[in-house]
Design a protein around this nucleic acid. Structure first.
Lengths: 204, 204
DNA sequence: GGATTCTGAATGACGATTCAGTTTGCTGCA
DNA sequence: TGCAGCAAACTGAATCGTCATTCAGAATCC
């Protein structure tokens, strides 16, 4: 039946993406041969071109599918009425680091490989990235209006440093520190550090 | 005389490096042709190979010369007896962002291009980067011993998030926000945010 | 006039992409 | 149930363009 055919198809696509994440993480986008991805996925070189326009498209697909998903979840967090701004920030931190825990390869692809092509970064990733930061900034701005966060910090800068801190933790974790538990520990510490800075002088 | 000869030589080397920073920033390492660097520097393609082993070596030289320099300055800051830990952290922030101010291209090369090759990042940059973070962590640890900083945050994590936040600010500035004054403003805000988080519960 | 520096066209390797051919799966028909 | 025939999915060796790098010769310096 039609469904079965489609199933096989998406299964193969998924295998290619999973293989690509592994080899991109190990060797980086530019040092990865298409034939290596094919070999890791157990398909022929040409098969990749049945599912993706070209090599760029493989990287873009990995990135876009994961980040879009992350933005959706983030937006839903920001919109919740029943959470305080602090709780929302905590959720954001746990989400971003938690999503990656146990997925070292994906973390590495997102933090490192994303920047591998300025072309891709500027043309494709920058708008997504901006949307991501905007949601974070909105949470901070809401918190300021409600009096939970200090007002002498621009929400935009707060969002940028929040993201940067998380990215830095993920990067150093990916290149240096294979302990998976470290990441959760890092999340907890970062929560304290960042939130205490942001609520400074406000009664929480 | 010998000095003059050497002068011309290093002048040409410097021109190549400066040209490389410009084109790497615009197009990224892998999307840059050696011939483009040569053209921008006003030399022949072959000349580049008189001063650098290969294309990788050009990128590595840019990175290493700047970061090594940064580590030296940082170490000197950390070792000063006449400064409080807070003052040292402030200096670090201003140094790292201040160094880049007015040098948008260099900022972009360091934050974006550095990550373009996992090979280069892991083999070459990781050790330098670790040294850099160690100096930062030492400042935090000293501050904790002196009672200036809270002790429930690991110096290593603090250093990672400090670096990450700065990197995030530099990255977003490089790809999004051409205002040079914004970077200094960002430095000030980040100082407040990070230091207030770090001194939380300590009398400063 | 010998050494040093520079030049840029020629070389050669590499690897993304293609496509002619093969395999697989499905359909309806006997 | 078996089978011819068609379509869709897959294969991987051959193609082809793209550069990084080289090097024979030119230019410059002392």
């Amino acid at each position: 039946m039609a469904a079965k055919k489609k199933d096989r198809k998406s299964d193969k696509r998924e295998r290619i993406l999973a293989a690509a994440i592994t080899v991109f993480a190990k060797n980086g986008f530019y040092d990865t041969r298409v034939s290596e991805i094919a070999k890791a996925a157990g398909v022929a070189d040409g098969t990749i071109y049945l599912y993706f326009k070209n090599k760029d498209d493989v990287l873009v697909s990995i990135f876009s599918e994961r980040i879009e998903q992350l933005i959706d979840v983030l937006t839903r967090i920001a919109d919740r009425e029943d959470k305080t701004p602090e709780q929302k920030i905590r959720k954001v931190i746990e989400l971003q680091l938690g999503v990656l825990e146990g997925q070292r390869d994906l973390a590495e692809v997102i933090t490192v490989n994303l920047r591998q092509s300025s072309r891709l970064l500027k043309q494709y990733a920058a708008p997504l990235f901006t949307r991501y930061l905007e949601v974070m900034a909105r949470i901070v701005a809401d918190g300021q209006e409600q009096g939970a966060f200090r007002r002498d910090i621009s929400p935009v800068f707060a969002a940028r440093s929040l993201w940067g801190g998380l990215d830095g933790i993920a990067l150093t974790w990916a290149i240096a520190d294979p302990e998976p538990t470290q990441l959760r520990k890092a999340a907890q510490q970062y929560e304290r550090l960042f939130l205490d800075g942001l609520t400074h002088g406000c009664t929480s």
